[in-house]
Design a protein around this nucleic acid. Structure first.
Lengths: 192, 192
DNA sequence: CATGTTTTGTACCTGTAGTTCAAGAAGTGT
DNA sequence: ACACTTCTTGAACTACAGGTACAAAACATG
């Protein structure tokens, strides 16, 4: 009933995610979005309501694609330390290869909006929580496999790994080559 | 020659730093600045030229006060590990105590502007470099004092510590209590 | 003081952010 | 074919961002 949408809202959210990811929230204008999504302003506001609402959808989409992908990588089977090293290295490699150097959208959102935007803060908080849990679970697995000393507090190591990843991805936006970051990854994994 | 300024430009930069620190670059309006600095728009633009130029001065001011303060803390004498632990803890404590949760201005600037704003990127890059050097120097000192295993690459540990601090300060903007962060600090220092 | 220089506050300007709306297009039920 | 609904397009609208222009006022210097 009624005229069907001429565009795919999910694909549009994906495009919007890209723009917000690259430019941040405040610096993204409705015009940027209209241009990127290839739809009219009317459709934009008719479908998504507001810039802020669209940003929320974009951030959720980020969680469901990117953040979840990391967690799933950590849950795969195989030697724990090598799995961890590979996951960290993949993130850093992707960040450095990105011509726009957008880093991690959750980290960016936290830096820009934590404290001001309750929705964004809460979403990022939960992403961080879930990621930390995945790290902790991986550490416990490594302890059961005898790869990691059983004396270490898996929860604390999980926090440490999350913090390192957050730091790495922020650093990857600023730093020149991969050397420093790869040293950080090695030092982190070797310390387990 | 001519009428002297009715306000102290250095104090004004300090105020501007506060505003930019709290709201970020894009979200800060000339009106915000005029209100915070307590001067008219005419004076603002007559003295500082543009919002961007004022932001540059504010970021430099941040480097000269905050970033340098951390480096100086690290250079003080005393047992290395305790010095390190105290410094990290002080940062986290300050971040958590801040009602606005502004975190580290350099980290925020990197997240918002890296890749887009050459000036900001370069300034942050240099702050990171200098901080990392201070960490590395501290590690070397710890090695000479027999506190830290001499086998470890001081430069790599410096990178690791910088990354951890960056991660911690970002996390401090989002996380609820101090427990997780203090665990991270302990795990980091204990791993040395 | 007279003079020249600088500051200051206000008014003003251009462009765009963020949103709304009117009018028409493309479907569905009868 | 007709009404009814939902979507699209693009113009229109309000507010404010970011910055400029200026005239009046405040000071330094001779």
């Amino acid at each position: 009933m009624g005229r069907p949408k001429q565009f795919d809202p999910d694909a549009a959210v994906e495009q919007a995610m890209d723009v917000f990811w690259r430019k941040g929230y405040a610096a993204t204008t409705p015009q940027d979005l209209v241009d990127a999504l290839g739809i009219g302003k009317g459709s934009l506001y008719n479908t998504f309501g507001s810039k802020h609402a669209l940003f929320e959808r974009a951030l959720r989409r980020y969680r469901d694609s990117q953040a979840v992908a990391l967690i799933e990588m950590l849950e795969e089977s195989g030697p724990v330390k090598e799995r961890l090293r590979a996951a960290l290295w993949l993130l850093v490699e992707m960040d450095l290869a990105d011509p726009d150097r957008r880093g991690c959208m959750a980290v960016n959102a936290a830096a820009e909006l934590a404290g001001t935007d309750e929705m964004a803060t809460e979403l990022v908080r939960r992403m961080f929580d879930r990621t930390e849990e995945a790290f902790s679970a991986l550490v416990e697995k490594g302890q059961r496999a005898g790869e990691i000393a059983p004396g270490r507090d898996a929860r604390a190591v999980g926090s440490l790994l999350l913090t390192t990843v957050v730091g790495l991805r922020l650093m990857a936006r600023v730093v020149e080559g991969p050397e420093r970051l790869s040293r950080v990854i090695d030092a982190t994994v070797d310390s387990l």
